[in-house]
Amino acid sequence: MTKEKDALMVLSGGMDSTTMLYDHADSIALAVTFHYGSNHNEREAVCARYHCERLGIELIEIDLAFMGRHFSSALLNGADAIPEGHYADSNMKATVVPFRNGIMLAVAAGLAESRGLQAVMLANHAGDHSIYPDCRPGFVTTMGAAIAAGTYEHIELRAPYTGMTKGEIASRGKALGIDYSKTYSCYKGAEKHCGRCATCVERREALAEAGITDNTPYED
């Protein structure tokens, strides 16, 4: 029996959401990419389009440009504003876009209900928790309850990677045969990954942990 495709997924085009797209392709009816003005937004979107086309999953792109105009975050202020180092460093808090996932999930929930879908999917993971409040288990639980309470069909929030590390996600992607060179991570947003910002460092570590040859073009 063919599994019903009942979910909408928030897809950036980075490693984690791309892995989830393949991992749960049999249940994803629709993906949505948000343009909110981050340095790397447009390069991620190219990757999101590529993978949705490859899997035959419809992709909708939604403009949230007001976030880039009005919110405060190094991620919205150009490459020079991005600190370098690992996520564990306190300076990476500068890259938080306030309540980004909350805003995106609210839009996604309305879109899912409008399309008659039963769930929204988010690819947050354990490595995000210390820095990003809207990636933590408590947020997922509470936001999930709000989405269910605020929709007639009690839309479900699914976040199956919440307890996984990025290395574990990459290992799953390796088993799925995902080409990670067709994903984008760097917070600086240049053609080549810088190799120095937290997302580049984390990307390199995750691919190495999973035993994946890293074909990402890095500046350093």
Rank of each mutant, 00 (worst) to 15 (best):
T2G: 08
K5G: 01
K5T: 04
A7D: 03
M9R: 05
V10C: 06
D16V: 08
D16W: 09
T18A: 02
H24V: 00
H24F: 14
H24G: 03
H24D: 00
A29T: 04
A29M: 02
L30F: 08
A31Q: 00
A31R: 06
T33Q: 01
F34V: 01
F34L: 11
F34N: 04
F34G: 00
H35W: 06
Y36H: 06
G37D: 08
G37F: 06
G37K: 04
S38A: 14
H40T: 12
E42C: 00
E42Y: 10
R43P: 01
V46R: 07
C47D: 05
C47N: 09
A48R: 02
H51F: 02
C52P: 05
E53D: 15
G56F: 08
I57W: 06
I57H: 01
I57V: 15
E58M: 01
E58K: 08
I60K: 08
I60D: 00
I62Y: 13
D63P: 07
A65Q: 13
M67Y: 06
S72Q: 14
S73Q: 09
L75W: 09
L76V: 12
A79Q: 12
D80A: 15
P83A: 14
P83Y: 12
S90Y: 10
K93Y: 10
K93G: 07
T95D: 06
P98R: 00
P98K: 05
P98N: 05
F99Q: 09
I103E: 05
M104S: 09
A106L: 14
A112V: 03
A112G: 07
G116M: 10
Q118R: 15
V120D: 00
M121K: 01
A126P: 02
H129T: 10
H129R: 08
Y132V: 07
R136V: 07
P137H: 10
F139P: 02
V140F: 10
V140C: 07
T141V: 14
T142D: 14
A145L: 13
A146I: 15
I147W: 03
A148T: 03
T151N: 02
E156G: 09
E156V: 11
Y161G: 07
T165C: 03
K166F: 05
G167R: 01
E168N: 06
E168H: 11
S171R: 12
R172K: 09
G173M: 03
G173C: 02
A175K: 13
A175D: 14
L176R: 09
G177W: 06
I178R: 04
I178E: 04
D179Y: 13
D179R: 13
Y180R: 06
T183Y: 07
Y184E: 00
S185L: 09
K188N: 10
H193M: 13
C194D: 12
R196I: 13
C200V: 08
C200R: 00
V201I: 14
E202S: 15
E202K: 11
R203L: 11
R203M: 12
E205Q: 14
A206V: 13
L207I: 09
L207G: 05
A210S: 07
G211T: 04
G211M: 05
I212H: 08
D214I: 01
N215D: 12
T216C: 07
Y218M: 08
Y218D: 05
E219W: 00
E219T: 03
